[in-house]
Design a binder for these strands. Structure first.
Lengths: 263, 263
DNA sequence: TCAAAAGTGTTTCCAATACACCCATGA
DNA sequence: TCATGGGTGTATTGGAAACACTTTTGA
């Protein structure tokens, strides 16, 4: 799906994809204290979609998800996990107005001579497995795919109109994140290498959707013994400067097996 | 898949199933203090499989899983949840000896005139979504499907040879059960209506794979406030008779939303 | 010297754990 | 009356939570 002329290329290789199967990636990033999700905007219309793709016949699904992630962000070896499969009869392109408009737009982009292929492919019932990825926003260099005008971070509290059931997929991903918070590499994946304890706390708060006590958070985290302490961060503000910390890979991974145990 | 002559019927309706998509049900039951899983044995050979099926074009996947559950056990309105989707390139019928033998057996059962349909169907790459169900063993009346000789409970510690990646699927289901124990209706679904605290404790122990303290378990459970106390169970043994308890539906459901909080 | 935020201390409460003790049951 | 297992009591420990106090920073 990555050539300049996607449609020709896709149609040429249409037989190399598993029919009726797709995958969607909910890629979370954390910026300005707010959780964001990476979305693509279709050409000319104000309808957005999750990055995703189809499954090549000879490829593992997780590998295909990894490719999507790499093509949109340039990042590799990122935390990525399957979290749910969406197969509802109501998720098709004709089930809501945003999807119908997007489908018409896509169809216009398709070469005249391949309209039949378009129809038979997009009228299939699709079973889509959704993946969750956690990345550091400042490391990603975003690239739209050939169906899309642009690729942007959108705060989870202000989602635009989305195709298909992508809104539901994002909601499910958020819930998964919340429930699994103690078993996912939240801090390591979403924050830059060095960060302050307050930044980490804000991240937890934005996922758990509740306030945490500053003092208790700091003590609890530091007692986990997974942090390396660095220099202070001098912001120029007229208050005590916080220390920067980074996460020690090895002890963090060991701890994740048991669960970090934050409630 | 439930007619007397499955193959004819299935072939007749082959166009009504989503190609390349299947579902498997890991149905857990608890008997004699041991967790069991429901398995089907193919005709004439000692190879077993999870109950499963294909997805009718016009049916929700969960509904299809419900049908599988109903057809094998006669039970309806059972706890049932999707937990993972299996799509590996290595899960096909030709990837291990048990599966190859089972496939040959199935092919022999197929009518001569439909061999081509058999091949094109079973040589597809299948994406299978796995469901977890929890049932009360004594309420189920087991029925084999048309591919199988019998349908039996097998203790999870002594699994027979299984087709495809069904062993992996069961392992993943067990892990899901363990991790999610506080958010699944373990007691309500797996035990009979009335049970003793020791029985409940044994169930938890068999899932968590560790011993729990008798006194603490009893107190902790009763403090949850979800049990109705009934008469004592007179076993005839020469010791104090334990009380029987049942679970109050409403307060149990409320509690599950928060998590029962057993570690 | 002041406000603001970081860092640390203190107190209270409750869950988890370990283990002891008494009670009911039928042989 | 005895062995066996059920039910309950108790002491200890440690984490969670609430909040107070001290320190650092730049205006």
């Amino acid at each position: 799906m990555e050539s300049k002329n996607l449609t020709e290329d896709f149609i040429k290789h249409i037989k190399t994809y598993v029919p009726g199967v797709s995958l969607d990636c909910v890629i979370f990033g954390y910026r300005n204290g707010v959780l964001h999700v990476l979305l693509l905007k279709y050409f000319d219309i104000n309808v957005w979609a999750l990055p995703g793709g189809f499954l090549p016949n000879d490829m593992e699904m997780k590998e295909a998800a990894n490719d999507v992630l790499f093509n949109r962000t340039g990042l590799q070896e990122i935390f990525l996990t399957q979290f749910q499969t969406f197969s509802s009869l109501n998720r098709g392109w004709d089930k809501n107005i945003q999807s119908r408009v997007a489908k018409e737009k896509l169809q216009l982009m398709w070469p005249k001579k391949h309209q039949e292929e378009f129809k038979s492919w997009f009228n299939q019932r699709f079973i889509s497995t959704a993946y969750l990825a956690l990345i550091q926003v400042d490391k990603a260099s975003l690239t739209a795919d050939d169906l899309s005008e642009c690729c942007e971070w959108k705060p989870i509290s202000e989602l635009p109109d989305l195709v298909l059931d992508h809104k539901l997929i994002i909601e499910m991903a958020l819930n998964y994140l919340k429930v699994q918070i103690n078993y996912l590499p939240i801090g390591k994946s979403l924050l830059p290498y060095k960060f302050t304890m307050l930044e980490l706390q804000k991240l937890y708060e934005s996922i758990l959707q509740k306030r945490l006590d500053r003092g208790n958070f700091q003590r609890k985290m530091l007692k986990l013994g997974i942090f390396d302490k660095h220099e202070k961060l001098m912001t120029g503000a007229s208050n005590k400067a916080p220390f920067l910390y980074s996460i020690d890979e090895e002890s963090y991974n060991n701890l994740l097996l048991e669960g970090i145990g934050f409630r």
